[in-house]
């Protein structure tokens, strides 16, 4: 797998076409996790897979312009912290999380979409970070 130049022209073109669609599908699954099947984790992994596809097709350097490693770590920690805050807010408030009034709307379910978004941000960037670490290790070993 030639890491610097990426794969052939066909793969690059198809990836350029489908990358936006995949990431929009992931966001759709995250946002409608409380109405239709889906949820934060699945949507986050789909976003990760879109970035992994981009990395496999175009090589390492093009992706690193968009998502740096430290930025990845920052986003992941931020998602985890937001979810921790939401989950422990119930202890302070001493009452249950407020349910929404209008059902079947995107923001009509109280705190659940916020939780979904936080989990998806954390999972997406964290798993991408993990994959990036594995790739980096393999490359260092080959270059050695």
């Amino acid at each position: 797998m030639s890491n610097e130049k990426g794969m052939s022209l066909i793969v690059k073109t198809v990836t350029r076409l489908t990358f936006g669609l995949i990431i929009i599908y992931g966001i759709y699954i995250v946002l409608r996790g409380h109405i239709s099947p889906g949820g934060g984790f699945a949507g986050g992994v789909i976003i990760t897979l879109s970035f992994i596809l981009l990395m496999l097709a175009f090589g390492k350097d093009n992706v690193l312009k968009k998502l740096n490693q430290s930025r990845c770590l920052t986003f992941s920690s931020l998602g985890a912290l937001i979810f921790l805050f939401i989950a422990t807010a119930g202890f302070i408030n001493k009452q249950k999380a407020v349910g929404g009034k209008e059902h079947f709307a995107i923001f009509g379910a109280g705190l659940i979409p916020l939780c979904d978004i936080a989990v998806s941000v954390m999972v997406g960037t964290g798993l991408f970070l993990m994959f990036f670490a594995l790739v980096l290790l393999v490359e260092e070993k080959e270059g050695k």
Binding site: G33, H34, G39, T88, A97, G110, I112, D116, V119
Partner: peptide, 20 residues
């Protein structure tokens, strides 16, 4: 909870500490 998907309602509202 206002969530039509019962599984999401359980994981994120009734048993949210589990997910945490």
């Amino acid at each position: 909870t206002g969530s039509a998907n019962i599984v999401t309602a359980i994981t994120l509202n009734f048993r949210s500490l589990d997910t945490l």
